[in-house]
Nucleic acid binder design. Structure first.
Lengths: 66, 66
DNA sequence: ATTCGATGTAAAGCGAACTTGACTTTTAAA
DNA sequence: TTTAAAAGTCAAGTTCGCTTTACATCGAAT
């Protein structure tokens, strides 16, 4: 699953640390998500959408890859 | 996290078994989701949205509950 | 009253999501 | 050219999404 987290985080002028804090997750989680090492829980996806003020579908691109 | 899976499944005339098969998950997973015993992975959420032909946000209602 | 499809419960197990901590590399500014 | 913030790696541990199996309940036919 591809995502635009790094791009959106930059657009919102946030460091990984700041985003992690807002999401109440560890910085490792942000790093791993940006590197697409794993897929987030739906709760994290909702939190991200809220922070970036958009839809989950605007952040994550599902291509039926599994 | 609340969801409308049971409702949407009924509207689409599907049994838990049939939905599980389409999603490639076990029937237990459907039961547990409908009973809101846990939250799905983002991948399952995308698959559900595809089957029900709607947005993830139309199926799952996030109220910041965590 | 019996049967059967659909729904439900319980419990053990596995792998993925996420944490924590310690350390390294990159980048940019002083 | 040192320094420091930001980004990254590695590894071990915990929690939770999901599976599997086996059994129970309910409703609606027959």
């Amino acid at each position: 699953m591809k995502n635009r987290i790094k791009e959106l985080r930059a657009k919102n002028d946030l460091t990984q640390d700041q985003l992690a804090e807002q999401l109440e997750v560890s910085r490792q989680t942000i790093i791993s998500l940006e590197r697409e090492r794993y897929n987030p829980s739906i709760i994290l996806a909702f939190k991200l959408a809220k922070i970036f003020n958009c839809q989950i579908e605007d952040i994550f691109i599902y291509e039926g890859e599994k």
